[in-house]
Structure formats: structure tokens, C-alpha cells
């Protein structure tokens, strides 16, 4: 479990990571983009499985498995309209042109997740504890599934040791307008301990 001070410090760390991811996304889209940390929290299992909304309609999600000092998942999730809108944006075609998840649309989403995710993780790696940390993301994999089912699977490791789980949630703006994208970082239980140790003034566990 993390205390409120540790959660605040982690919030600062993730906000700095989000700034770097913002720069990378703006360059990739060639237009103003902003990524903000919505929350860095410990939630009950019930609350956590609803962070992508209570809708039971399937969503699209690019899932990056994390290895190294931070094990878990980084998930870039969007509803179909927002995800397909991203493909339109990248292909410089009118909004609404892409209407299904074909190879090009999947590739656009996965490449965006790769760019945003790696920028975010690289920044965390540099900023954490004043020294580089080894964070190794796998290539993103696009899945379409029910949001609660996706989150259950990602939260399973933490849920095996606690009824309260830690996650970070991120929001996006493109051209000044909010878009229905969400970047979630869900570490496993040992990695929550590692995050705590990265904070200034925190001592490693024996």
C-alpha cells in the first residue's frame, strides 16, 4: 500500500513523464496535443474495473507488456470512433473515413501507442530516483474487448495480494479538444514496491 504522500510524489513523477509523452505525440501527429495525468490512485477492485467507463460496449486497446524494473501493462485505450479517428488524422483523410479496424488502422493505433508509451516510459526511467531504470516494453498489441474484462486481466496480479489496486490514468487533448483516449499504467505488485523505492527519501525494502 502507498500512503498519500507517496501517491502525491508519484503523481509528480508521472506528470513529468506525461510532459515528455506530450512532446512525442505532438510531433507524431504534427499538431498540438496534450497528455495530462488524471489520477494516480489506489482503488477498490470494483472502482478500478470501471476506470475506462461503465459502458459494456467493446473498446479498442493497445496493450504493451512491461518488463524490467517495472512489470505490468501500459494500455492505450479508446472507443472505436476515437481510435478510428486517430487513423484518419494520421492518414490526413476526412474524419469518419476509417470505419473498421483494418490493417492500416491497427498499425496507426499501435504505432501511436508505441511512440507515446516509449516516450512516457523513457521519461520515467530518467526521472526515477535520479538514475536510469531499465524499463522494457514489448511491442503494442491491439485488442478489442469489453473494458472491464481488459482491466480485470491487467489488475489480476495486484488483485491476488490485495483488494485495493494501484493505477495511473491519463487524458488526452488534440488541437485543444478532449479526445476519448486513455493511457493506463498498471504495474504488478512487486513493481508497486519498486515505484515507492524510486521516490526521493524512500528506502529500498530489504
Amino acid at each position: 500500500m502507498l500512503n498519500s504522500t507517496q501517491l502525491l510524489k508519484l503523481g509528480d513523477l508521472f506528470r513529468a513523464g506525461a510532459e515528455q509523452a506530450t512532446l512525442a505525440l505532438s510531433r507524431w501527429l504534427d499538431r498540438p496535443a496534450r497528455i495530462t495525468i488524471e489520477r494516480v490512485e489506489q482503488l477498490s477492485l470494483h472502482e478500478a474495473t470501471d476506470v475506462l467507463g461503465e459502458s459494456e460496449e467493446p473498446i479498442a486497446a493497445c496493450v504493451m507488456e512491461l518488463r524490467g524494473e517495472l512489470v505490468g501493462q501500459l494500455i492505450l485505450a479508446f472507443d472505436d470512433a476515437s481510435g478510428l479517428g486517430l487513423a484518419d488524422l494520421l492518414l490526413a483523410q476526412p474524419l469518419g473515413t476509417a470505419h473498421e479496424w483494418g490493417e492500416i488502422e491497427r498499425s496507426a493505433a499501435q504505432e501511436t501507442a508505441n511512440i507515446v508509451g516509449c516516450a512516457y516510459l523513457n521519461a520515467l526511467s530518467r526521472l526515477a530516483g535520479g538514475q536510469g531504470r531499465e524499463l522494457l516494453p514489448d511491442p503494442p498489441r491491439l485488442v478489442r474487448d469489453y473494458p472491464q474484462a481488459l482491466l480485470q486481466f491487467s489488475l489480476m496480479n495486484q488483485a491476488s495480494t490485495s483488494d485495493v489496486v494501484f493505477l495511473t490514468e491519463t487524458r488526452f487533448h488534440i488541437d485543444g479538444s478532449p479526445v476519448n483516449w486513455n493511457l493506463l499504467l498498471i504495474p504488478d505488485t512487486p513493481s508497486v514496491g519498486h515505484l515507492r523505492e524510486w521516490l526521493p527519501g524512500e528506502t529500498p525494502h530489504p
Binding site: A48, Q148, A149, L151, M156, A159
Partner: peptide, 21 residues
């Protein structure tokens, strides 16, 4: 997640499952 419920005569129970059973 981790919840349970019972009902009788016409009610409907529902849930969403990932790796859970």
C-alpha cells in the same frame, strides 16, 4: 470483480469476465 449475488423467479444476474471465472 470478486462479487456474488443470488436471485429468484425472473431476475437476471450478469457480470463481465476476463481471466476470472
Amino acid at each position: 470483480m470478486g462479487e456474488l449475488a443470488v436471485c429468484q423467479q425472473g431476475g437476471c444476474l450478469r457480470t463481465l469476465l476476463g481471466s476470472c471465472l
